[in-house]
Amino acid sequence: MDWQFFLEVLIGGLLAGVMYSLVALGFVLIYKASGVFNFAQGGMVFFAALTFVSLVERGVNFWLAMVITLAVMVVLGVLIERIVLRPLVNQPQITLFMATIGLTFLIEGLAQGIWDAQVHGLDLGIPDVPVKVGAINISQFDLFASATAGILVLALAVFFQKTRIGRALRAVADDHQAAMSVGIPLNHIWAIVWAVAGFVGLVAGLLWGSRTGVQFALTFTALKALPVLILGGFTSVPGAIVGGLIIGASEKLAEVYIGSSIGLNIGTGIENWFPYMLALLFLLIRPEGLFGEKRIERV
């Protein structure tokens, strides 16, 4: 076995997995705080990336565009809380889930209606060329993406663990009614969560967008996040990261090694279904995921 090649595939996979983690993070945030599986996360990624790239193309300064897009995502989060979630409070989960499906189409349509449906190139100024570490080639862009994800997760961890709002968010995630009873306003909390998820969507959108071009297909990144969530657990931020790494690494390894060992040519697309199969196995063995919150039950 060629270890150098193996390592290269592994590291490439891990770094690609970080990109999945980024999308999965947005799901985790909203699921944690409101118990809603937000199908619209992919749409939000697309919306954020498209807004950003359109602004930049219209000559807006890079950082200013970033700030404006962030503001737009926050407003979007607040609007979603007001218009969609608030009237549906206390409805069964499936109702909220359906609402987010509707929201997906609305956001996607809105994005394309306001801007356009073209494919936009996005250049973050990071060259996508490999750097040599020892004898292994590593994509510089992937390294940058991982660093970004790392910083983001760290920031989120601090936000959740150390701040008053973060504590309130976790309290709401634990027990809505009790949170209300101590005076935590659910509306604000949900608006904040959606805004933070919008911010995470923006980061994911920029990284994905600069890799694949900003286009409608970005919304499908949401589907890639699903196996990540099932592996890592819907309620865990570290889970989203680890899940992403496992999915990324395993799909690349499966593509290269399983594919070739059963006589298929590389590029026959094991990569595309392998994560879902892995997720299926996980559902059978450990449905709460690797890091999902186990229900605390005292005996």
């Binding site: 309290a171 634990d174 027990d175 009790a178 009873s181 101590v182 005076g183 935590i184």
Partner: peptide
């Protein structure tokens, strides 16, 4: 109705939210 996944002290602190 304690917040099960928060520590006792964090539980108390949520009470001071308002």
């Amino acid at each position: 109705h304690c917040f099960g996944h928060l520590t006792v002290e964090e539980n108390l602190l949520t009470g001071a939210y308002t």
